[in-house]
C-alpha cells in the first residue's frame, strides 16, 4: 500500500513539474502569439476609428468591405502568384533534394543553402533589383554580348515578383524535401527499374509516394509565407502586382482602416491553419500506419513457431 501510494504521489509530482517545465513556453506563446491573434480577431469585428485604431462597437463592416472587386482581383492574383511560385519551388527542390541526398558532400551543400540567410532579405531583394533593372547586371551582359541594343524590361512585373519569390523561399522547400529524400531507400528505385519501370517512371511511381510527407511540408512551408509576402511585390512588383500583404500594410499605415487590415490578415491565418491541419492530419495517418509495425514481432514469432513445430513435413 505505502509503496503504491509513494509511487502515485511521485507520479503526481512529476505531472505537476511537467506543467512548470512547460510554463515559460506557455507564457511566451500566450503573450506573443495568442494575445495578438485574439486582438486581431477582435479588431476585425469592430468599427474603424477615424484616425486609425478602433471604436469599441461590434460591426461586420470590415468583412463587407472585403467584397470589393478591387480586393477580389488582388486576392485572385495572390492565389495564382502563390500557386505558381510554390509549384516552381517544389519542382526545383525535388531534383535538388535528390542530388543532395545522393551527394557525398551533404554538409557542404546544406551549408551553401543556408548561407544566403546570413544576408538580410531586404538586401537580397535589392540585389535582384540591381540584377534585373533596365541598366542592371543582366541587361548589361546581354548588351555587351551584342544580343540586344536596349535594356529589356525585366523588373516591376508579375514575372519578377514570381522569380524573386521563388529565390526567397526555395530553401524552405529544399530542406524538408532533402530530409525525407535522404531517408528514402534508394534500392527501391533499383527494384522498380528491375521490374520494368523507366528511370522517370521509378521516380514517379515509387519515390514520390514515399516522400509525401516531405512534399507536403515543403508545399506548406513555401505557400504560406509566399501567400503573405509583401516586401517582394512592393519592391520588385509593378503597379498591378500588389498582393494581400500589401493591402494589409496599406490599410494599417495609409488608409488607417485597422478592422479591414485585421479582416484580411484573418484570411492569411485561415490559409496557414488549413495548411497546418492538412499536414497534421496526414502525419497522423502515417503514424497510425507505423503503429501496426509493433504487430510485426508477434507475427515473426508465429512464423518461427510454425516452422519449428510444423517440422520439415
Amino acid at each position: 500500500m505505502s509503496i503504491k501510494d509513494g509511487r502515485r504521489s511521485s507520479e503526481r509530482r512529476e505531472r505537476r513539474l511537467g506543467v512548470s517545465y512547460a510554463a515559460p513556453m506557455g507564457v511566451w506563446f500566450t503573450v506573443f502569439f495568442i494575445a495578438p491573434l485574439v486582438i486581431i480577431i477582435l479588431y476585425s469585428f469592430l468599427k474603424r476609428g477615424l484616425y486609425g485604431g478602433v471604436e469599441w462597437e461590434f460591426s461586420l463592416t470590415a468583412y463587407g468591405q472585403m467584397f470589393n472587386p478591387n480586393f477580389g482581383k488582388v486576392l485572385l492574383r495572390t492565389i495564382w502568384i502563390s500557386v505558381v511560385a510554390t509549384a516552381f519551388c517544389i519542382l526545383l527542390a525535388i531534383p535538388t533534394g535528390y542530388a543532395m541526398a545522393r551527394s557525398k558532400h551533404q554538409t557542404l551543400l546544406l551549408f551553401l543553402i543556408i548561407i544566403p540567410f546570413w544576408t538580410n532579405s531586404l538586401i537580397r531583394i535589392y540585389a535582384w533589383i540591381s540584377i534585373l533593372s533596365t541598366e542592371g547586371f543582366f541587361n548589361e551582359i546581354l548588351k555587351s554580348l551584342g544580343i540586344i541594343d536596349e535594356g529589356l524590361h525585366l523588373i516591376y512585373n508579375h514575372g519578377s515578383v514570381i522569380l524573386v519569390l521563388i529565390y526567397m523561399y526555395l530553401p524552405f522547400a529544399i530542406l524538408p524535401l532533402f530530409t525525407t529524400i535522404d531517408k528514402f531507400d534508394f534500392s527501391l528505385l533499383d527494384a522498380a527499374r528491375d521490374l520494368g519501370a523507366t528511370k522517370f517512371g521509378a521516380i514517379r511511381l515509387v519515390m514520390l509516394p514515399n516522400i509525401r510527407s516531405g512534399l507536403l511540408t515543403a508545399i506548406v512551408f513555401t505557400f504560406i509565407p509566399i501567400f503573405g509576402a509583401y516586401t517582394v511585390p512592393l519592391l520588385v512588383g509593378g503597379k498591378d502586382s500588389t498582393m494581400i500583404g500589401n493591402i494589409i500594410v496599406d490599410q494599417v499605415s495609409k488608409t488607417r482602416n485597422w478592422p479591414l487590415a485585421s479582416a484580411f490578415s484573418m484570411i492569411l491565418t485561415l490559409v496557414s491553419t488549413v495548411g497546418v491541419i492538412w499536414m497534421m492530419m496526414s502525419s497522423r495517418k502515417e503514424q497510425a500506419q507505423k503503429k501496426n509495425v509493433t504487430n510485426q514481432q508477434k507475427t515473426e514469432q508465429n512464423i518461427l513457431d510454425h516452422h519449428t513445430t510444423g517440422g520439415e513435413a
Binding site: 531507400d185 527501391l188 528491375d194 523507366t198 509516394p209 514515399n210 509525401r212
Partner: peptide, 28 residues
C-alpha cells in the same frame, strides 16, 4: 537498361514498395 533485361532481382533488404500492399507490390 535493367528494365529491358530478362533478369529480375531479389534484393537484400527486399526493397518492397512501402506505400503499396502485398497485392500491389506483386502486381507492379
Amino acid at each position: 537498361p535493367p528494365e529491358k533485361r530478362q533478369s529480375n532481382t531479389v534484393f537484400q533488404t527486399y526493397a518492397l514498395f512501402p506505400h503499396l500492399t502485398v497485392y500491389e507490390n506483386i502486381a507492379f
